[in-house]
Design a protein around this nucleic acid. Structure first.
Lengths: 268, 268
DNA sequence: AGAAGGACCAGTGGTCCGTA
DNA sequence: AGAAGGACCAGTGGTCCGTA
């Protein structure tokens, strides 16, 4: 179903240009790019640069049925990571850039809607793994585990990997828990021309503020949200909540007045 | 508190004779042996055979404050597992025998109330580990993990170990979920003079029957019980439930009459 | 420089099998 | 023989750091 269409669409580095094309092909505009992609039904498959992938290609053979639209790739002459020797490959996903909600990244970049979409895809892979486990009477994962990443890879979603997903979990968490704030942060960081790393760092603070309002139990906050509950709480977020709770408690005990919001003294 | 008293009491192979003494000392009779032990406050500590434990003893040094009542040990002359050589030790817990509820094992044996008590102790160790984790803002186990077993060992509960606890989990599960049936099974197997292995095997069947009545979801059954939810569902129990569900479904589809209870065709 | 992800590592769940 | 548990092993969560 839709998941598989998307897997095919996205494989081997779904570039933003491509998304843009899909979007334009679907006659879209603004908001819900990924929903459009889903609606488009995955008619086209991504294989640009397959010429670099000698060894791996055969695995996807069943999907190699449409080879048109090799497009504006502008591969520079010295862009030789497809170098000879028979096995020279090494494709990576395009790096993320800070985009506004609904905005499609330009150049060899991926946008943040795409990033968040990867989390949704992982959730769908988890659900599939769970269904298989239940059918077989095996123990059933409640989180996105190594098994799920392995399953995603086997299903052709090579663009999904554990380090990447773990790296941005808290960004996705903010998106789930307070989309308004998440959107505002994206707009602000895009406007200021900040890079992805800076945006990623900035996602921690509003999350800690949310935790503060809800009794500091970040695990409970994750678990209470249906799409977030399948992700492990990132170590750093947990630590920030703990540190801030301690200093908030100290502040409350030291002075008789509680500072507004209680999270103004974050040392980060 | 109570846990620690019990740890001390039980360490290095709490024998049934000793329990009997505790019980008699406390002027008891029938039912609730372990509650009595708790009530007794752990006045006495167990050290018989410490002479075999040269190396390990020092670890418990702080508890070595009362050395009386070296009792009816009747150590046979050829019972030489305390053999010389400076490091010759190798104490094991006395093996379990099938006892009725409230019955104390005789001879160098441990009874089933003691077995089940070990599960309660693990639960208390888990709670302590959880409290420490929460205090430190670290991730908090919901199950009895390796970490908990390690903690129990450090706390002096050397008689608790993972293979043993995992081995009898389903027996404890039956005890939690249907004490009546569990007690009846114990009485029946004791009367027939069956060994612990046979009793242990027999515990599976009533559990599968419980699962059958509750939609076969053994994980949900474990999770719904506050004392059981901290234990992993044993692989074999999970498999039995799966197999039996499948054959029950087949039977239901094949014949138009459902057999009484639906679990009469267990191939075990 | 900023970023993606292969690959490593300490500690896990699971239980076998050498031991008593 | 029946049983207790040290110790092993495959696969985990976590993330570093060689790579592009």
């Amino acid at each position: 179903d839709a998941t598989h269409a998307l897997d095919a669409l996205s494989q081997e580095g779904l570039s933003e240009e491509h998304v843009q094309q899909e979007k334009e092909a679907a006659g879209s505009g603004g908001g819900g790019v990924w929903e459009m992609v889903v609606a488009a039904g995955g008619r086209k498959q991504r294989r640009r640069k397959d010429n670099c992938k000698a060894g791996r290609r055969s695995r996807m053979a069943s999907m190699d049925d449409d080879d048109d639209d090799d497009d504006d790739e502008t591969e520079g002459a010295e862009d030789d990571d497809c170098g000879g020797g028979g096995g020279g490959e090494r494709q990576r996903e395009h790096p993320f850039i800070v985009t506004e909600p609904g905005e499609v990244a330009r150049g060899k970049k991926n946008g943040l809607d795409y990033l968040f979409h990867l989390y949704e895809q992982c959730r769908e892979f988890l659900i599939q793994v769970q269904n298989i486990a239940k059918e077989r009477g095996e123990k059933c994962p409640t989180k996105v585990t190594n098994q799920v990443f392995r399953y995603a890879k086997k299903a052709g979603a090579n663009y999904i990997n554990k380090p990447k997903m773990r790296h941005y979990v808290h960004c996705y968490a903010l998106h789930c828990l307070d989309e308004e704030t998440s959107n505002a942060l994206r707009r602000a960081f895009k406007e200021r021309g900040e890079n992805v790393g800076a945006w990623r760092q900035a996602c921690y603070k509003p999350l800690v503020a949310i935790a503060a309002r809800q009794g500091w139990d970040i695990d409970a906050i994750f678990n209470a949200h249906p799409r977030l509950s399948i992700w492990y709480v990132p170590t750093k977020l947990r630590q920030l909540c703990h540190t801030e709770r301690s200093s908030a408690a100290t502040a409350a005990a030291t002075s008789s007045s509680i500072t507004g919001g209680g999270v103004d003294h974050l040392p980060f």
